[in-house]
Design a protein around this nucleic acid. Structure first.
Length: 233
DNA sequence: TCTAGCGAGTTGTTTACCTCA
DNA sequence: CGTGAGGTAAACAACTCGCTA
């Protein structure tokens, strides 16, 4: 709490606080009018006090005395008015800050829910792709002679009719049940094993290593797929 | 009757100044 | 003369009360 030395010296010459008991503050009856009825300050008094408060929330004691004289009030009344004004301003300020924070929180919360839904959809889509790849792998196992519609051993010549088109990424086709992270990871590993591409942890492979051409997907499509994977995990 | 706003009282804390050993 | 401890006064914040519209 800062103090104004000059003001203190000046005030110290005055009498100490005029009593602590109820009814002893300031003018004795609390309204400065002497008739014992508590009234509010006049419009003009409030206007001048507000004007002063706008420029200075903590005026020097000297200024308060001056203002009190101008307004025909006791200096103590002016001091109390400023104390109350600061307290009530702070209270309103806290309310404003609370409302602003709550608004921000609500917005973030809504964004979070949207992202959660989007994540769910992407997971479903990934599972759908995995299932399709697996079924394609099964067909490959059934026909070892490398017929059309099957994957080749190195994955460089696979049938693109399943995943080569963008329909794989149709966001409306999110009908698969949810998978957990472990299931997804296992599926992808299995998928990679199946296709004999990177992704097997034991081989030191990485899911982020993209072969030049993988099952008909170009680098850009694969990059998008990897981004999805990273987002999902 | 309830409620919000307001002026003022109460209490505890902080700070600067003063006095004295 | 310098210094630290204790006392004092003033200002303030926070809380509260009672009154009024």
């Amino acid at each position: 709490m800062e103090r104004d030395g000059r003001a203190r010296v000046a005030v110290k010459k005055n009498k100490k606080r005029q009593g602590k008991g109820k009814g002893q503050g300031g003018d004795g009856d609390g309204d400065g009018s002497g008739n014992g009825i508590k009234k509010g300050f006049s419009d003009e008094q409030v206007r001048m006090l507000e004007t002063m408060f706008e420029t200075e929330t903590k005026p020097e004691p000297r200024k308060k005395v001056e203002l009190a004289r101008e307004l025909g009030l006791q200096p103590r009344q002016v001091a109390i008015w400023f104390q109350n004004r600061r307290a009530r301003w702070k209270s309103k300020q806290l309310e404003r800050e609370y409302r602003a924070l709550k608004c921000e929180y609500d917005k973030l919360s809504a964004d979070y829910e949207l992202l959660k839904k989007e994540k769910q959809g992407l997971r479903s889509e990934l599972q759908r792709i995995t299932d399709m790849l697996r079924s394609a792998g099964d067909q490959s196992d059934a026909g070892e002679d490398g017929n059309a519609g099957t994957f080749s051993g190195d994955g460089a010549n696979c049938d693109t009719k399943y995943i080569g088109g963008h329909d794989c990424f149709d966001r409306e086709a999110m009908l698969c049940p949810q998978m957990d992270d472990e299931t997804i990871e296992n599926s992808v590993e299995e998928m990679c094993d199946l296709l004999n591409v990177g992704g097997n942890k034991d081989d030191g492979g990485s899911l982020t290593e993209i072969p030049e051409k993988w099952c008909g997907l170009g680098p850009s499509e694969m990059s998008a797929a990897v981004q999805w994977w990273n987002f999902c995990t």
